[in-house]
C-alpha cells in the first residue's frame, strides 16, 4: 500500500507543522490538531476533489470542507498550505500580527481555502448544510464535508442542524465528529456525558458510521465508503475515534494539551518522534 504510506508521510509532516507553528508563537491548540492530522490529510490529499488554485469561494463542481471546531486551525492551515492553497512559508505567520492565519480560521483576511469563519462553536454544521443544499439547487454533484469536536456537540445549534438535515434529506453532506473524549475541562464523559453518541445521531435520522481516525487505511476506506452511502436520503455522520495529541507520546490522551504550546525542550522531544518527510517550512 504505497499510497497509504505516502499519506502517512504527509500526515507526519503535518504533525511537525502543527507543533512548530504552535511552539513558535507559544499559542494555539496542538492536541486536537494532532489527533485529526490523519483525517485531514486523507481528505485533502486523497478523498476530496478540489482545486486549490485559483481558489473559488463558490467551489463549483468541487468537494467542500468546513472546519467547525476552528481552534484546530493548525492542522487546517498545514493541509491547506501543503496541498497548494497558499505558500507553505506562510505557516510561519500563524497567530502573528498582520497574518492571514488568524488564531481561528476566517475568510476576513482572504486566506484561500477558508469558506467561513469558525471558532465560536456549534455553527459549522448549519453552514455545511446550507452549502450542501445550494449544491443540490445548482445540480452540483460533489460533496460537502465537515468536522466537529466532540465537546462541540454540547452546543444546541448542532442538534437544530441535525434535525434539519434529516428532515430536508441533505444526503450530500458527510459530517465527522472528532471523538477523542477530551475537552478543555477534562474528559467529555465527565464534563457533559454524550451518552450513546451513535444512537443519538441515528435517532435524529442520520446514517451513522464509525471509524478509527488514527489509522490511515481505515480513514481512507471510511471516507470513500461514506461517499458510497451518500445520496440515499440521509445525511452521513462519521463518529471518528481519535487520540488527542496523537503522534507525540507525552501528549497523547492528555487534555492539558488542548490549548497549550510545547516549550523548547518539549518541541525537540516531540519532533524527534516525527521524522521530517516533506521538509519543514523555514522560520
Amino acid at each position: 500500500m504505497a499510497q497509504i504510506q505516502e499519506l502517512e508521510n504527509i500526515a507526519t509532516q503535518v504533525r511537525r507543522d502543527i507543533l512548530r507553528m504552535v511552539h513558535h508563537v507559544q499559542s494555539g491548540h496542538p492536541g486536537g490538531s494532532l489527533g485529526c492530522a490523519d483525517f485531514m490529510t486523507a481528505l485533502y490529499f486523497e478523498v476530496m476533489k478540489h482545486t486549490p488554485q485559483p481558489f473559488d469561494m463558490d467551489g463549483k463542481d468541487q468537494d467542500l470542507f468546513f472546519l467547525s471546531n476552528g481552534h484546530i486551525s493548525p492542522v487546517f492551515y498545514s493541509v491547506l498550505a501543503r496541498s497548494g492553497y497558499f505558500p507553505i512559508e506562510e505557516l510561519a505567520t500563524f497567530r502573528k500580527i498582520n497574518s492571514r492565519l488568524q488564531g481561528h480560521p476566517t475568510t476576513h483576511e482572504g486566506l484561500p481555502g477558508v469558506r467561513v469563519a469558525s471558532g465560536s462553536l456549534g455553527q459549522g454544521l448549519s453552514v455545511a448544510i446550507g452549502a450542501a443544499q445550494t449544491k443540490k439547487m445548482n445540480n452540483d454533484k460533489r460533496f460537502v464535508f465537515s468536522l466537529h469536536g466532540d465537546g462541540e456537540i454540547e452546543e444546541g445549534q448542532i442538534w437544530e442542524a441535525a434535525m434539519y438535515a434529516a428532515h430536508h434529506k441533505v444526503d450530500n453532506l458527510i459530517a465527522t465528529i472528532d471523538y477523542n473524549n477530551k475537552q478543555i475541562d477534562g474528559d467529555v464523559d465527565e464534563v457533559m456525558n454524550l451518552g450513546d453518541i451513535e444512537a443519538k445521531w441515528r435517532a435524529f435520522g442520520w446514517d451513522v458510521m464509525r471509524m478509527n481516525g488514527n489509522n490511515m487505511q481505515e480513514v481512507v476506506t471510511g471516507l470513500n465508503d461514506a461517499k458510497e452511502r451518500a445520496n440515499k436520503g440521509k445525511p452521513i455522520m462519521i463518529i471518528m475515534d481519535t487520540i488527542m495529541g496523537k503522534g507525540v507520546d507525552f501528549m497523547e490522551n492528555d487534555h492539558h494539551w488542548h490549548g497549550v504550546a510545547p516549550n523548547d525542550e518539549q518541541l525537540e522531544k516531540a519532533l524527534a518522534q516525527l521524522p521530517e518527510t516533506l521538509g519543514d517550512y523555514p522560520l
Partner: peptide, 28 residues
C-alpha cells in the same frame, strides 16, 4: 417551493444555513 426552506423554530440554525447557502451563489 424548491427555493423556500422551512427551518422550524431554530433561528440559530437558520442563520448558519443561510450563510452556507451563499457559497455557490444563492441570496438567502
Amino acid at each position: 417551493p424548491e427555493r423556500f426552506f422551512q427551518v422550524g423554530i431554530a433561528e440559530a440554525n437558520m442563520m448558519g444555513i443561510a450563510a452556507g447557502m451563499t457559497i455557490g451563489g444563492k441570496i438567502p
